[in-house]
Computed example of a mutant assay.
Amino acid sequence: MFSYAKRCILVIDDEPDLCCIVKLTLERLKSWKILTTESAQAGLAQAEMQQPDVILLDLTLPSGDGLTLLQILKTNSTTQSIPVILFTATDPSSNSLKFDPADVAGVILKPFNVFQLADQIIEQLGW
């Protein structure tokens, strides 16, 4: 049976309470290593340094636009192969968001059920 214990997830979201909830839930439910950061710049640095298995990326970051960070991640040779799941309260199907659907592995809309979050990640990544 496949083990999820070695998985590493980077959460880039400007809400510290949400980062804490996601970290505690996924570490407890799946024993995954969860890294969190609240800014685009720190998120890019963490992604390059840690090479996580997946990135949960909020689209509305005060220190830098999440869509811009997505483009940087997908054009950076160090991070381009890391799957990115948009983690957002903004419906990505709205006309206000312009991104290439091929750049994202999935979307998790906020609010979300914390107990179903791990299953959503597993389903969207095909783990």
Score class of each variant (00 low, 15 high):
residue 24 L to F: 09
residue 100 D to K: 10
residue 82 I to T: 11
residue 43 G to K: 04
residue 17 D to E: 14
residue 22 V to H: 03
residue 108 I to A: 05
residue 82 I to H: 00
residue 57 L to T: 09
residue 50 Q to G: 03
residue 70 L to Y: 12
residue 32 W to P: 07
residue 108 I to Q: 06
residue 94 S to A: 11
residue 94 S to Y: 04
residue 123 E to L: 08
residue 99 F to G: 00
residue 33 K to Y: 04
residue 68 T to V: 13
residue 43 G to V: 01
residue 36 T to M: 03
residue 33 K to M: 09
residue 111 P to H: 05
residue 21 I to E: 07
residue 106 G to R: 02
residue 71 Q to C: 11
residue 125 L to S: 01
residue 62 P to K: 15
residue 52 P to Y: 08
residue 92 P to K: 08
residue 82 I to R: 04
residue 19 C to M: 04
residue 54 V to L: 13
residue 62 P to T: 07
residue 36 T to E: 07
residue 83 P to Y: 07
residue 31 S to H: 15
residue 85 I to H: 02
residue 117 L to W: 00
residue 99 F to V: 00
residue 68 T to E: 12
residue 70 L to V: 04
residue 39 S to D: 05
residue 58 D to M: 10
residue 98 K to S: 12
residue 28 R to A: 13
residue 12 I to C: 01
residue 14 D to T: 05
residue 78 T to P: 01
residue 69 L to N: 05
residue 40 A to G: 11
residue 44 L to R: 09
residue 105 A to R: 12
residue 67 L to G: 05
residue 86 L to S: 05
residue 88 T to R: 03
residue 49 M to N: 13
residue 82 I to W: 07
residue 98 K to F: 12
residue 25 T to F: 03
residue 33 K to N: 11
residue 123 E to S: 13
residue 49 M to W: 03
residue 94 S to R: 14
residue 51 Q to L: 12
residue 59 L to C: 14
residue 115 F to S: 05
residue 119 D to E: 14
residue 111 P to M: 06
residue 126 G to P: 02
residue 93 S to C: 05
residue 91 D to W: 06
residue 93 S to W: 13
residue 83 P to T: 06
residue 89 A to G: 15
residue 56 L to D: 00
residue 65 D to N: 15
residue 86 L to T: 12
residue 51 Q to F: 00
residue 93 S to G: 08
residue 45 A to Y: 08
residue 107 V to R: 06
residue 124 Q to M: 09
residue 31 S to E: 10
residue 95 N to P: 10
residue 75 T to D: 07
residue 63 S to E: 07
residue 90 T to C: 05
residue 28 R to C: 09
residue 81 S to Y: 15
residue 64 G to D: 00
residue 77 S to A: 13
residue 39 S to I: 03
residue 112 F to R: 03
residue 114 V to S: 11
residue 116 Q to L: 13
residue 42 A to D: 15
residue 33 K to A: 09
residue 20 C to W: 11
residue 20 C to H: 13
residue 66 G to V: 10
residue 104 V to K: 03
residue 124 Q to R: 06
residue 16 P to V: 11
residue 39 S to C: 05
residue 72 I to F: 05
residue 68 T to G: 01
residue 36 T to F: 02
residue 126 G to I: 03
residue 121 I to P: 02
residue 80 Q to T: 08
residue 94 S to F: 01
residue 34 I to A: 07
residue 97 L to T: 08
residue 119 D to G: 14
residue 81 S to H: 13
residue 16 P to F: 09
residue 116 Q to W: 03
residue 16 P to W: 02
residue 74 K to D: 00
residue 101 P to I: 00
residue 109 L to A: 11
residue 86 L to P: 02
residue 32 W to N: 09
residue 96 S to T: 14
residue 85 I to D: 05
residue 99 F to N: 00
residue 18 L to N: 08
residue 96 S to W: 04
residue 101 P to M: 00
residue 86 L to Q: 02
residue 67 L to V: 14
residue 64 G to W: 11
residue 12 I to G: 06
residue 18 L to C: 05
residue 26 L to D: 11
residue 41 Q to L: 12
residue 29 L to N: 11
residue 50 Q to M: 10
residue 107 V to F: 15
residue 41 Q to R: 10
